[in-house]
C-alpha cells in the first residue's frame, strides 16, 4: 500500500459516501422518469406544452431548491411525436429563480433538430437506457462545466421513448461535496468518468477535464452507474 493512500477500510467508507450521493441522483431521476411517463399517459387528449410545464415545473422547483443539493437545473425534453412530428418541447428550468431555459425554441416548428445530436438527448432516446454526459461545457443551459444525467421516459413499457428527463449537476457543486472524501482516500485520489477524464481530483496537477490514468496497484471503486474513484491517479 502506498503511504499516500489510506487503509482500504477507510477508502471503502469514503468511496461509499460518494457512490451514495451519485446513486441518489440516478435513483431520483429514474423515479421521476417513471412518474412522468405515468402522468403523461394519464393526460386525456392531445399533450400540450402547458400540460407538460404543469407536470414538470413543481419537481424542478423541489430539486433545485433542495438545500445543499447537487442539481443546478432540470427538466423534460419531448421526443418528436409527443407534441408534433418534427417538434420537440423543452420544459427545463435552472437556478433558484427557476430561469426557463431555451423556451423560445418551443416556437420553432423544427425544434427537434436542435437537440437530436446532443449526447444527453440522443443516447437515452436511442438506447432506452439512462445516461450521463460529461463533464462538458454546457452552452445550452448553464454555460458551466457540468454533468448531465438523463433518463428516457416511456408512457407504456413496450412503447416508444416519448422524451427524456434530466438533471444538470455542476462540477463545482460536486467538488464541494466530494473533495473531503477524496482527500481522506488519498492525496491523489480522483473521481473519473468512463473515459478516464477527471471530474474532481485531490491531486494538485490534475484539473477537472484533464485525462488521467490509474496508478499501478491503486484501488478502483464504482461511483454510480458510470464513474469510478481511483485511489491514486497520475496526470497524463
Amino acid at each position: 500500500m502506498s503511504e499516500t493512500t489510506a487503509s482500504i477500510d477507510t477508502i471503502t467508507v469514503h468511496a461509499g459516501e460518494l457512490d451514495a450521493a451519485i446513486t441518489g441522483i440516478e435513483d431520483r431521476l429514474a423515479a421521476w422518469a417513471a412518474d412522468t411517463g405515468t402522468a403523461l399517459a394519464a393526460l386525456s387528449g392531445k399533450v400540450t406544452g402547458t400540460a407538460v410545464d404543469k407536470l414538470i415545473r413543481p419537481v424542478v422547483e423541489e430539486l433545485v431548491r433542495t438545500p445543499d443539493g447537487y442539481v443546478a437545473g432540470a427538466g423534460f425534453l419531448a421526443n418528436a411525436g409527443l407534441l408534433g412530428p418534427e417538434r420537440s418541447y423543452i420544459a427545463w428550468w435552472q437556478g433558484e429563480e427557476l430561469e426557463h431555459v431555451d423556451a423560445l425554441a418551443n416556437f420553432s416548428p423544427n425544434s427537434i433538430s436542435r437537440y437530436v445530436k446532443s449526447e444527453w438527448f440522443r443516447v437515452p432516446v436511442e438506447t432506452g437506457q439512462p445516461h450521463v454526459t460529461g463533464p462538458y461545457v454546457d452552452f445550452l443551459c448553464t454555460d458551466e462545466y457540468v454533468l448531465t444525467f438523463t433518463h428516457p421516459v416511456f408512457c407504456r413499457a413496450d412503447g416508444p421513448v416519448v422524451g427524456i428527463v434530466g438533471m444538470d449537476v455542476t462540477v463545482q457543486r460536486l467538488e464541494r461535496g466530494a473533495m473531503a472524501a477524496l482527500r481522506r482516500i488519498g492525496e491523489r485520489a480522483t473521481l473519473v468518468n468512463p473515459d478516464g477524464r477527471a471530474i474532481v481530483s485531490a491531486a494538485p496537477d490534475i484539473a477537472a477535464g484533464d485525462l488521467a490514468a490509474a496508478a499501478d496497484g491503486c484501488s478502483v471503486h464504482p461511483v454510480g452507474r458510470k464513474f469510478r474513484i481511483w485511489s491514486e491517479a497520475t496526470a497524463l
Partner: peptide, 16 residues
C-alpha cells in the same frame, strides 16, 4: 447550417 450543427452559437440566444 442546420440548427443542430449550429446549436452552440444559438445557445446564448434563448437563455432568459
Amino acid at each position: 447550417l442546420t440548427p443542430q450543427s449550429a446549436s452552440r452559437s444559438l445557445a446564448a440566444v434563448f437563455t432568459p
